[in-house]
Each structure stands twice: as structure tokens, then as C-alpha cells.
């Protein structure tokens, strides 16, 4: 199984950088289960990324999210589908569903996709995660490993 792991966010904004730290760890879990993972780290999702999606069997996006969103666990593992309606008004704020929709429109089929998101505590200037975000990241990784195992994605 060939997987693209795309971590995005701003690593100079403390917990906004959690996507960058999650991505290589997610790739390791995929590799441990026999998959072949390629990691891409970006500040934001951009239209040109969509062109390559068709080369993979699975897309895994890793991102931070602001408090008060998501399931309330502090992290979420969510299977996502193309959705053009989620576009923001500028390319600074598009989500993975929108990029998937763009890929589907321009290049046809897109592979199954999953978003691993972790709630941040602080988005102030600075490198490294807060302790709370770091703990949530570890929980998210454990949950992602279960998700992989449950779906037998080897």
C-alpha cells in the first residue's frame, strides 16, 4: 500500500506545527504495518498538491485544530471525502476535503483519505508543542494505529 502523509501547519506557531510532527510518526506506523509511506510537510494545502493524489492508495492528512472544534477528545481520526463546498475564500484556508474535490474534478478518482487532527493549546509564536498538545498527539497516534489495524490496511 502506497500512502502519502501530508502534514501541514506553521511549525513556528507552537501547536499549529503538530501536523509536521504527526506526519513522520504516522508514516512510521504505516511502515510498521507493511505500507510504503511518503511524507510531505507544507505550511498550507495548495491546489498544485492535488495533481499527485492519484498515485497513492491512501492519503493521510495531519493537522492542528483550534479548541472547541472536533469530537471533544482532543484529537480525531476521521475518514474524509471530497467536498467542494468547504472552500474558504482564499487559498490560505482550504481544508483537505476541498483539495480532494479539486483533485477529483481535475484528475478523476481520488484514493481513500483520512484526517488526523489534534487540538492545539497555544498558537502563539514559538517552536515545539505545549505539553497538553504533545499528550494529545501521542493519543492520536495510538488511535491512528488502531484505525490502521481495524481496517487491515497493510
Amino acid at each position: 500500500m502506497k500512502v502519502l502523509v501530508c502534514g501541514y501547519g506553521n511549525p513556528f506557531r507552537t501547536d499549529d506545527g503538530v501536523g509536521h510532527l504527526l506526519a513522520p510518526a504516522v508514516a512510521e506506523l504505516i511502515a510498521f504495518r507493511g505500507g510504503e509511506a511518503e511524507v510531505r510537510l507544507e505550511h498550507q494545502l495548495l491546489p498544485e498538491m492535488a495533481e499527485e493524489f492519484g498515485k497513492y492508495d491512501l492519503l493521510a492528512f495531519t493537522d492542528a485544530r483550534v479548541p472547541g472544534t472536533g469530537s471533544g477528545n482532543g484529537y480525531d481520526i476521521r475518514e474524509i471525502s471530497p467536498d467542494p463546498a468547504l472552500e474558504g475564500l482564499n487559498i490560505h484556508s482550504v481544508g483537505p476535503e476541498w483539495i480532494l474535490a479539486l483533485a477529483a474534478r481535475l484528475w478523476g478518482k481520488v484514493p481513500p483519505s483520512v484526517l488526523v487532527s489534534v487540538e492545539g493549546e497555544s498558537f502563539d509564536f514559538g517552536e515545539g508543542l505545549t505539553a497538553a498538545c504533545n499528550e494529545r498527539m501521542n493519543c492520536a497516534l495510538a488511535a491512528f494505529d488502531e484505525w490502521l489495524r481495524d481496517r487491515n490496511l497493510q
Partner: peptide
């Protein structure tokens, strides 16, 4: 927006990308 562009003018959208 660029999504509409992809829908109606895919060649142009691909060229820009």
C-alpha cells in the same frame, strides 16, 4: 473561485496549477 474554475474551465485550472 478556483473550484468553479476547475469545474467549468478545467484546462485553464490545470494550466495555472
Amino acid at each position: 473561485n478556483v473550484a468553479g474554475l476547475a469545474q467549468e474551465y478545467p484546462d485553464l485550472a490545470v494550466a495555472g496549477i
